[in-house]
Amino acid sequence: MILVEDLWFTYGEDFILKNINLEIGKGEFIAIMGDNGAGKTTLVKHFNGLLKPSKGKVIVDDLDTSKASIYDLSRKVALVFQYPEKMFFSETVWDEVNFALKNFGFDEDYRIHRINKVLALLWLDGLKDRSPFTLSGGEQRRLALACALAWDPDYIVLDEPTAGQDKYQREILTKIIQVLVEQEKSVIIVTHDIEFVAELKPRVVLMYNGEIVADGAAEDILSNEKLLRSSGLYPPSVIDVSRPLFDKGIIKKPIINIHDFIAALEMLARG
């Protein structure tokens, strides 16, 4: 469990995070949302100790992040930054995934087993000997994810995973995240991609100006237009259609994604 208690953070002048209280359970799927500069990335950097609280504390399982090393915390919490493909340096895809496994000191048999497993999970098995730099954009993004999943961390934090990705890659990403959630990994995505979140329907933590302004089910938060707009976000596009239908009493609740909307229409058609 990641426990954030009364967390305040500053680089020296203004507080970037103010009074953050958050509990992320094992196996939970959660999206931290907010406008640019809301403090999303600053918050998740506390989960693996890259940043230490100015006030309050962050506890990961039994480790207090202000005392534990980044190394020990990273073993539990994998943090995948925005545009992670920028950080490649190895000659082959295999070596790139192997890097973290070597760092964490796993023996060779386990490393081979894990690399094969994550490359298969991310549809990269045929690319073992390729240079990471020659992969396509989507493949690179998946490789970065493979690198983070390699050492089997309990918590996976993805910072803006959909940035710069096309619809096809987003669908693949959706499937991968669903697999991780099924495996009872805690998946934390940091994003302002509202359609992506509406599709996956995780628990949503909404941040604005360094504070948590809402925390709850995706359906409740993403259908609350006033709340979203005051946090610098726009509601998902399906809301434009489902909101008038809900107001007229045709459907029971405002629907946030297209699949649910189609399902609701089918229900209506059947009567």
Binding site: K45, S74, P84, M87, C147, A148
Partner: peptide, 13 residues
């Protein structure tokens, strides 16, 4: 700084 943070998050000491 960014690259350092990313590699440290991958267990680099």
């Amino acid at each position: 700084n960014e690259v350092m943070e990313a590699q440290v998050a991958r267990g680099l000491k």
